[in-house]
Amino acid sequence: MLLKVKNIQKIYGPSCTKCLHSTGYAEGSIICPYCQSVVAVKNVSFTLNKNQVLGIVGESGSGKSTLLKIIYLLEQPDQGELFFYGTPELKDKNLFQLNYLEQNSYRNIYASMVHQKVQDGLNFYFSAGANVSERITAAGNRKFYAIQNQVFDLLTQTEIPVSRANELPAKFSGGQQQRIQIAKALANSPLLLLLDEPTVGLDVSIQARILDLIKRLQEEYNFSIIIVSHDLSVIRFLADLTIVMKNGEIVEKGLTDQIIEDPQHPYTQLLVSSIL
């Protein structure tokens, strides 16, 4: 096992005793009618093994992106525990209770995230190469040429011309910007890669290239992936296991081919029937 997610809950707003009972799939809403709080994530638990790809599919407001940010320690949940077994130093410790340095070490070395909006993942005032090297230096590396070689290697792997390493992100296309994000996310050889709708808004041909790249890198380096998408065909392409979320809750969990060919939950059946 690599990751254990236990009973995650996240409510935005004052919250009250009635929040949990009056929101969710059956209630048809994530907004508590009594205190107007948003119950973004309600009691989510799952585990992830090494070399496994998990897809989280759901529509807008399902809580999937919030869940991913919580797993990357960008946000604190109200309740829940997170355990990471990729390194002995973090074993059996609830990641939400780590000190700042330990959390940083998790975010910089063992896990990484590719954001939906490139602006959230890259600094547009730094060059492409500098963005990638930032993660490498964050792990404590200080030798210039070693860092530079790693940066060039990562850019090559994500098919960004090394000759353009000193250019600012704004000079690249949307697809290239996303690939720079991926290059950065691969730095320090993470064990867990978190992808938040990595191809949304990109042209289909670019989407295919990026997904092919992610698949190829996963097969080569065997890191685990949690990929969040509203598009079942993206999930089908990459994920072995799938979780379906609606209104902050998990409604179904299973093997990806089973979720698509034999969906059990009414909402999953609706999603599958909506594939073009």
Binding site: G254, L255, D257, Q258, E261, D262, Q264
Partner: peptide, 9 residues
């Protein structure tokens, strides 16, 4: 076959 392979539950 699909039940054995677990594509069907």
């Amino acid at each position: 076959l699909k039940c054995i392979y677990r594509t069907y539950l």
